[in-house]
Amino acid sequence: MTERENLLKTTTFPEFNFAEGELLLINKPYKWTSFDVVGKIRNSLKPLKLKVGHAGTLDPLATGLLIICTGKLTKQIDSFQAEEKEYTGTMVLGATTPSFDMETAVDQEFPLEGITEEDIYAATAPFKGDIQQYPPAHSAVKVNGERLYVKARRGEETELRLRNVTVSAFEITRIELPEIDFRIVCSKGTYIRSLVSDFGRQLNNGAYLSKLTRTRSGSFQLENAYEVAELVAHLRSKKEVPTAPEI
């Protein structure tokens, strides 16, 4: 049995109507960009010429729930994007990187002696509720029409602006230094990398993000998401792709 046949055997798909509009829950793979996922799905829908977009960008090194909209449903992307998000992840305490994650190499290291579990739990308090944070220099935020990560990769420094965000929950779920696992529930626009970096400074230390998974967006759960390979295999297995309705 081929890999595609195996995928189709284990996954149940509804009858899609992509032209009218479908909301697809996708588990974004590690090192894929959100646009990579959109492109893969758009290509699998050829010869239909449909709008396909995503609601809420995930960094390439993050995994988890990505909402994809097709056809007429792309008009609702902003409303889906505005919903509350939930993440689980791992940070590394005792070091920093310029990108606040593993995209760039460690640039500073700090001793961990003297930091207790009580200190770590207590350090979450300033990051709950309505807070302000700077976006990472290596981020997709646009300044004067250009992404910050493009400027950062050229070695340019850019004045960053504070953003107002809301963190409804920040829980420490495992401590095995230098690693700390966490769960965060937050508003649209919250940068978990920035929060992790600020958390390290709160402990008079350093921290960077080593793993991140989006587990929820609004009422949509990661456990209900398709794997990209499974969905694409299903779409490409269809003998006939329905054409868009006449306007």
Results as ranks from 00 to 15, higher is better:
L8D: 07
K9M: 04
P14I: 06
I26S: 04
N27K: 07
P29S: 12
P29C: 11
T33F: 12
G39H: 13
K40M: 08
I41T: 04
I41L: 11
S44F: 12
S44E: 10
L45R: 04
V52P: 02
H54G: 06
H54T: 11
H54Q: 09
G56W: 06
G56V: 07
L58I: 12
D59K: 10
P60F: 01
G64M: 02
L65E: 07
L66K: 05
C69E: 06
K72G: 07
K72A: 12
S79D: 08
Q81G: 01
E84A: 13
T88G: 03
M91K: 02
T97V: 07
D101I: 05
E103Y: 14
A105E: 15
V106C: 08
D107E: 15
F110H: 14
F110Y: 15
G114N: 11
E117P: 10
E118H: 08
E118P: 05
A122E: 15
A125Q: 12
F127T: 03
G129Y: 12
G129D: 10
D130E: 15
I131F: 10
I131R: 06
P135T: 03
P136Q: 03
H138E: 06
H138G: 00
V141T: 13
N144L: 06
G145D: 10
E146S: 08
L148R: 05
R153K: 09
G155L: 02
G155C: 02
E159I: 15
L160D: 08
R161P: 00
I172Q: 00
E176M: 13
E176Q: 15
L177F: 15
I180W: 03
I180H: 00
I180M: 02
D181V: 00
V185H: 02
V185P: 00
S187E: 08
T190C: 06
R193Q: 01
G200E: 01
R214F: 11
T215W: 04
F220L: 14
A225S: 13
E227I: 00
L231C: 03
V232Y: 07
S237H: 14
P242Y: 11
A244C: 14
A244T: 15
P245D: 13
E246G: 14
I247C: 10
